[in-house]
Design a protein around this nucleic acid. Structure first.
Lengths: 157, 157
DNA sequence: TGGTATAGCATGGTAATTCATGGGAATCAA
DNA sequence: TTGATTCCCATGAATTACCATGCTATACCA
C-alpha cells in the first residue's frame, strides 16, 4: 500500500462549459495519500498552469525562510509571485476541479486540458501549446544529453 | 531475503491484444522486495521501452527538490521529459502489466516483448529491434576489445 | 539415474470495478 | 428572482482484478 508521490504521464481531459476538469485518477490518489490539497498557479515562464500538492508549497516557504544564499532575494520575490497567484482546488466526489478563468486564459485552454507530470509538480497545458513545448524540450534535452548521465554520483560501471 | 536487486537476463514474453505482458518472475520479485512499483517510459535514444523501480525516480525527484533550484529552466525541461513520459505500472495477481499504445508503438512491439536486464533498469524491445541492437553491441565491443587488452600509450585517437 | 509428482509461471478469457463526462438539482450571492 | 457555483446521480467506455488452463522447470522418490 505504500506509495510514492510522483506526478507522471501525460493525460488529455475535457474541460466542460463550466470549466470543470477531471483531475487524473493517479493524481487524485497521490493527493489523497498525502492528505493534502491541490494548489494551482500560473507558470511564471510558460503559457501553462502549474499545480502541486499543498505541502510542497509549505516546504518551499520554509526553505526560503531558512535560506541564506545569494539567490534568496530573487527566490523570495518569485515566491511572492507564486503565493499571490496560487489557489487551492478541492475536487468533488467524481474527482473534478473547476479551473478559474484567469488560469484557463493564461494557458490558452478552451475545451481540452493536458496534464503533464513533473514529479513533485505537474502542469496543465492546452493541446496546441503542449505540442510545441514538447517538441522544444525534446530538441533541447537531446542537445544536452550528457547532463542526463551526470546527475548521479555513485554510479560505477 | 534477497542479496541483489538487479534486473538481468533476456526474456521473451507474449503481448496479447490488450497489451498485456507478464513481467518476468525475477523482475516481479525485485519490485516486490523493494516494496515499489514499475515505471516505464520511452527511451530517449533507442526504439525501446525503459523501465525501473519507482523509487529510482523518487530519488531523482528528491534530488531535484533538494537542489534549491525550484525555478530552474533546465530542470523544468528535464523533469517534463522524464516524468511527463513515465507511467506507473502495477501488475495484477498473475504478474501482468498493460503497456500503453504509445510505448508499444515507440518500441515497435506487436505480439512479443523482449525484456533485457540492465541492472537498476531494464529495457523492453521488439524481437526484431533487439536482434539488431544485440548485434550492434557485440560488434561495438569486439571493435574495442584490442584496446581493452593491449594498453597502448598515447591512444587519444 | 531415470521417471514421475509438484509447484511456479505464462497466457487466454471474462467478470467486476473504476473512470471520465454529461446533465440536472440544490445552494449561495447579489 | 436571477445568475452562478457546488454537489450529486447516471451512463458508457475503458481499465483492472480474478479464475482457469496448459506448460515447464524443479524436486522427489524408487
Amino acid at each position: 500500500m505504500r506509495k510514492t508521490f510522483l506526478f507522471m504521464d501525460t493525460i488529455f481531459n475535457k474541460v466542460d462549459s463550466k470549466g470543470r476538469v477531471s483531475l487524473p485518477a493517479d493524481y487524485r490518489a497521490i493527493v489523497k495519500e498525502l492528505n493534502s490539497e491541490i494548489v494551482c498557479y500560473r507558470s511564471l515562464v510558460s503559457p501553462c498552469i502549474e499545480g502541486c500538492a499543498e505541502d510542497l508549497l509549505e516546504k518551499l516557504a520554509t526553505e526560503i525562510e531558512d535560506s541564506n544564499d545569494f539567490f534568496s532575494q530573487e527566490q523570495d520575490d518569485l515566491t511572492n509571485l507564486i503565493f499571490g497567484d496560487a489557489k487551492r482546488f478541492t475536487f468533488d466526489s467524481t474527482g473534478r476541479i473547476v479551473l478559474t478563468e484567469k488560469l484557463l486564459t493564461h494557458a490558452g485552454i478552451t475545451d481540452t486540458a493536458v496534464f503533464v507530470g513533473k514529479g513533485r509538480k505537474f502542469q496543465i497545458w492546452s493541446p496546441e501549446n503542449w505540442a510545441k513545448e514538447e517538441a522544444r524540450i525534446r530538441a533541447e534535452v537531446l542537445k544536452k544529453r550528457p547532463v542526463l548521465n551526470a546527475h548521479k554520483s555513485g554510479d560505477n560501471a
